[in-house]
């Protein structure tokens, strides 16, 4: 069976072709991705499903240009990762992409508000900061309010619950108004009710602002609500599976 090449309507923002990635563990080579082909279109929510350890987080990192692929190409808005210098990639990550991680990854020394402001601080240098400070601080306030943390802005991450931390992380990912949001198991570490809230929040944001989202998850319920899903099997992306089947696979 040949690998499925996902075709979807709308402008293709992100295009992966023949992506491979392997890790060396001692003397053995662990092939995680074995030629992934994937398209992500503007405004859609794409869920990437897979068993834990199947390489879906690795795929997300590769798609988000955090990690280079061993072979194959990742075109983001028509530009190949390999042809974009490090500093420019950093700028794109800062201004165009947002990341939400399973383990929140907030900076522990900073308050919730400062964490949300961090992408803006990185965006504007010392000289440009004063003229943007007011606007970006206002935006951070609005975002934190939107995710329901109006009263928690001055709290450090260790004084926040898991759900609250993930809300801060989502607000942070949205601070620079990215066109693209990468979510790596955003609800993976949360209990069912909180997970639903976070998912609803993400979906709502997608509806309101039209961000393109790639959500990595092992949760079929979440995938079911995405516009589209692919699942990772044997290091390849397939979109011909039935969700029920996928759930079955996951149960094994």
């Amino acid at each position: 069976m040949s690998d499925a090449t996902t075709q979807a309507p709308g402008r293709v923002l992100l295009q992966a072709r023949g992506v491979t990635k392997a890790y060396k563990l001692g003397s053995t080579k662990l092939e995680v991705l074995r030629g992934v082909d994937l398209d992500v279109c503007e405004g859609e929510i794409l869920a990437i499903l897979g068993k834990s350890g199947c390489g879906k987080s690795t795929l997300l990192h590769v798609l988000g240009w955090l990690d280079p692929a061993d072979s194959g190409s990742i075109h983001f808005e028509g530009r190949d990762r390999a042809s974009v210098p490090q500093r420019e990639r950093a700028r794109l990550r800062n201004e165009v992409m947002g990341f939400v991680f399973q383990f929140y990854h907030l900076l522990p020394e900073l308050t919730a508000l400062e964490n949300v402001l961090m992408p803006s601080m990185i965006r504007y240098g010392r000289l440009a900061w004063p003229q943007h400070k007011k606007a970006v601080t206002e935006r951070a306030h609005v975002l934190l309010e939107q995710v329901g943390l109006k009263d928690r802005m001055g709290h450090r991450p260790r004084h926040l619950s898991g759900g609250e931390r993930q809300r801060v992380a989502i607000a942070r990912a949205l601070q620079n108004e990215p066109r693209f949001l990468f979510c790596d198991e955003p609800t993976g570490n949360l209990d069912g009710k909180t997970a639903d809230e976070i998912r609803d929040l993400l979906w709502q944001l997608n509806k309101e602002t039209g961000q393109t989202m790639v959500v990595v998850t092992h949760d079929a319920r979440m995938a079911r609500q995405a516009d589209r899903f692919v699942h990772i099997v044997d290091g390849r992306a397939r979109d011909d599976g039935e969700l029920d089947l996928v759930e079955e696979i996951q149960r094994d």
């Binding site: 955090l66 490090q86 950093a90 700028r91 990550r93 990854h105 961090m118 990185i122």
Partner: peptide
């Protein structure tokens, strides 16, 4: 933290 900053778009020089 360094990894997070990298993901948020801080270049290596930063």
């Amino acid at each position: 933290d360094i990894g997070i900053l990298g993901a948020l778009g801080a270049p290596r020089a930063g």
